[in-house]
């Protein structure tokens, strides 16, 4: 047994593969763990949606969503976010081809689209506050700002995460570890897109109906 230590590189068939496999296991385990995290995030958003639906008529005599929400801006930001989901998909395809530059480029485009989504959302919030609807106006607006804002907060966290990943990719290139990280962040990004579809439908479309 002692010679296995003195000559670790010599045991190529044995634990050279073992190391590789352990690494692979670790990465796939992290991927699985992230899927489970997404389940918990679904519950988190589900609770916020339930609260919004329960409180949607409680405007306390104040402004309603139908009066203040402007659909044009929302449709634009919806398309921006959907497009960013598409570009993050392209980034993953580039990664699978092993093209580091393409990967970083498409991630940067995704982040840029995400940032413009956040920019539009912040503008919308400022506009609403000027129109006299803030978080303390009524239960409806409390639920509105917290639900939409939590989604926005998730997107913002995703942005910071993506920038950190681009730096890591620049330094380390595509490795099993960075590959897993990109896969996870893109999973997260698609997830936020799906949540947004529900926000768009339940908060905005049904709100102005």
């Amino acid at each position: 047994m002692a010679h296995a230590v003195s000559n670790p590189a010599g045991a190529h068939g044995g634990h050279g593969d073992g190391h590789h496999e352990e690494h692979h296991d670790q990465e796939s385990m992290k991927m699985f763990g992230f899927w489970l995290f997404l389940i918990t995030d679904v519950i988190l958003f589900g609770t916020l949606f339930a609260t919004f639906v329960v409180l949607r008529l409680n405007t306390d005599g104040g402004p309603t969503g139908a009066e203040l929400l402007e659909m044009n801006g929302i449709i634009i930001s919806t398309f921006i976010l959907l497009t960013s989901s598409f570009t993050s998909g392209i980034a993953v395809l580039e990664m699978n081809k092993g093209n580091k530059r393409g990967l970083i480029l498409w991630l940067a485009i995704t982040a840029l689209l995400g940032a413009s989504f956040i920019f539009l959302e912040v503008n919308e919030f400022i506009h609403l506050v000027h129109e006299g609807a803030n978080i303390g106006t009524s239960a409806y607006w409390s639920a509105f700002f917290v639900l939409v804002g939590t989604h926005g907060l998730h997107v913002s966290v995703g942005l910071v995460w993506m920038i950190a990943l681009m730096i890591q990719l620049g330094r380390r290139g595509i490795s099993p570890v960075t590959k897993r990280k990109v896969s996870i962040v893109s999973l997260y990004w698609h997830f936020l897109d799906v949540v947004w579809i529900f926000v768009f439908t339940i908060v905005y479309l049904m709100g102005v109906m």
Binding site: A139, S142, V146
Partner: peptide, 18 residues
């Protein structure tokens, strides 16, 4: 927390809270 800190109306008796 948002109710207490930012004056929202999720669970208050006034402002349409429940």
């Amino acid at each position: 927390f948002i109710d207490r800190y930012l004056g929202a109306h999720f669970f208050t008796l006034d402002g349409g809270g429940n």
